[in-house]
Amino acid sequence: MAKTTQQHSAAQTVTPALRQWIIDQAEAGFAPDVVLKSMQASGWSEDVAIEAMETTLSAHLAATQARKHLPAAVAVPEPALADSPLLLDAGDRMVQVLSVMRHPRLVVFGNLLSEQECAELVELARPRLSRSLTVATQTGGEEVHVDRTSDGMFFTRGESPLVQRIEARIARLLHWPEQNGEGLQVLNYQPGAQYKPHYDYFDPAEPGTPTILKRGGQRVATLIMYLSAPSSGGATIFPDVQLEVAPQRGNAVFFSYDRPHPRTQTLHGGAPVLAGEKWIATKWLREHEFK
């Protein structure tokens, strides 16, 4: 008899439908012993029923707890992509839509900047370059970090007619107020320079984050514009979704993150430049007016 019971148990498969039924019974308020008796009455062996209940309810509890601690979603910049357009009107320029992902929310744009605009940004930025800094999440300030080996500088918002024109174009393209953008940052990557994978939002668990958020709330989106392409290397990489975006001059990659959490799948980095040099301009967008 024992052998027959073991064979019967081995033949019973716990399906997704059964797991959902167990969750439904638990959420309806039925006690575990009641659910167990119901399963046995339906032909499930006791050992299989107990294991199915324990594993299903443990996993369901863990998922419920994770959702409770998940930051609330907020509004994010959103290009007008509902009709799958090939081109978007950015006011003074028609911008190509080259590639779109839904999760993460990611768009590769073509022809966002002209060759002349790219060259002008590089020349204006060149004499003002210094070692790039990262946000110091422990204090809310800035610091040199070994993961970031580029040189960079910031234009203040609206600093020049060129910067004003590009910022207005971005605001129209992404449907987000100009005043909610940080100053345009220009970065230069020489051979060997890189930026290891990271998130652009500010980690709520870090002690310096409340200070950072006073200037405009969380970052909710990033736009990386390519000003010059290296001969080799330098792609923008998204490890979570195994995507590489080539640094083609004049193009850009946009991605948004509706909450400061890894589930946005916006982990990204700048792969090492192998030959030549790479120039990019980055625009970070905040929830509120950036001051």
Score class of each variant (00 low, 15 high):
residue 92 D to M: 01
residue 74 V to Y: 06
residue 90 A to E: 01
residue 99 S to T: 07
residue 70 L to P: 04
residue 95 V to I: 11
residue 96 Q to C: 04
residue 94 M to I: 00
residue 110 G to L: 06
residue 76 V to R: 08
residue 79 P to R: 08
residue 99 S to D: 15
residue 107 V to Q: 10
residue 107 V to A: 09
residue 92 D to E: 05
residue 94 M to W: 07
residue 72 A to D: 09
residue 87 L to D: 01
residue 83 D to K: 14
residue 81 L to M: 11
residue 111 N to R: 12
residue 112 L to A: 01
residue 110 G to C: 04
residue 100 V to I: 14
residue 97 V to C: 06
residue 94 M to D: 01
residue 104 P to R: 08
residue 80 A to M: 12
residue 84 S to V: 01
residue 68 K to P: 00
residue 82 A to H: 14
residue 90 A to V: 01
residue 81 L to C: 10
residue 74 V to H: 11
residue 79 P to T: 07
residue 91 G to N: 01
residue 101 M to P: 00
residue 85 P to K: 04
residue 81 L to N: 07
residue 108 V to D: 04
residue 101 M to T: 11
residue 110 G to P: 04
residue 78 E to I: 08
residue 110 G to V: 03
residue 106 L to R: 10
residue 79 P to E: 07
residue 96 Q to T: 09
residue 67 R to I: 03
residue 112 L to D: 00
residue 79 P to N: 07
residue 89 D to P: 01
residue 106 L to A: 11
residue 83 D to W: 06
residue 78 E to K: 15
residue 99 S to L: 12
residue 87 L to K: 07
residue 81 L to S: 07
residue 69 H to Q: 13
residue 65 Q to S: 06
residue 75 A to P: 02
residue 109 F to V: 05
residue 74 V to G: 02
residue 76 V to S: 03
residue 95 V to L: 06
residue 87 L to G: 00
residue 87 L to S: 02
residue 100 V to D: 02
residue 77 P to W: 11
residue 92 D to G: 05
residue 79 P to H: 09
residue 105 R to A: 12
residue 105 R to F: 10
residue 105 R to M: 09
residue 70 L to T: 14
residue 80 A to Q: 15
residue 73 A to H: 06
residue 112 L to V: 01
residue 86 L to N: 08
residue 76 V to A: 05
residue 110 G to Y: 04
residue 75 A to Q: 15
residue 94 M to R: 07
residue 74 V to M: 14
residue 107 V to D: 07
residue 72 A to T: 14
residue 89 D to R: 01
residue 107 V to I: 15
residue 112 L to F: 14
residue 84 S to G: 00
residue 96 Q to H: 09
residue 113 L to D: 00
residue 98 L to C: 11
residue 80 A to V: 12
residue 85 P to G: 02
residue 70 L to C: 12
residue 94 M to H: 04
residue 113 L to N: 00
residue 86 L to G: 14
residue 67 R to T: 03
residue 70 L to M: 15
residue 85 P to R: 03
residue 99 S to K: 12
residue 93 R to H: 02
residue 76 V to Y: 07
residue 108 V to L: 13
residue 65 Q to F: 09
residue 90 A to S: 03
residue 84 S to Q: 06
residue 102 R to K: 11
residue 98 L to F: 04
residue 85 P to V: 04
residue 86 L to A: 11
residue 97 V to L: 08
residue 110 G to K: 03
residue 91 G to L: 05
residue 103 H to I: 03
residue 86 L to R: 08
residue 84 S to K: 11
residue 101 M to W: 13
residue 83 D to I: 02
residue 108 V to W: 11
residue 111 N to P: 00
residue 100 V to M: 07
residue 96 Q to F: 04
residue 100 V to R: 14
residue 101 M to K: 13
residue 67 R to D: 05
residue 84 S to C: 01
residue 71 P to E: 09
residue 98 L to R: 13
residue 70 L to D: 03
residue 88 L to V: 08
residue 91 G to S: 02
residue 108 V to I: 13
residue 72 A to P: 01
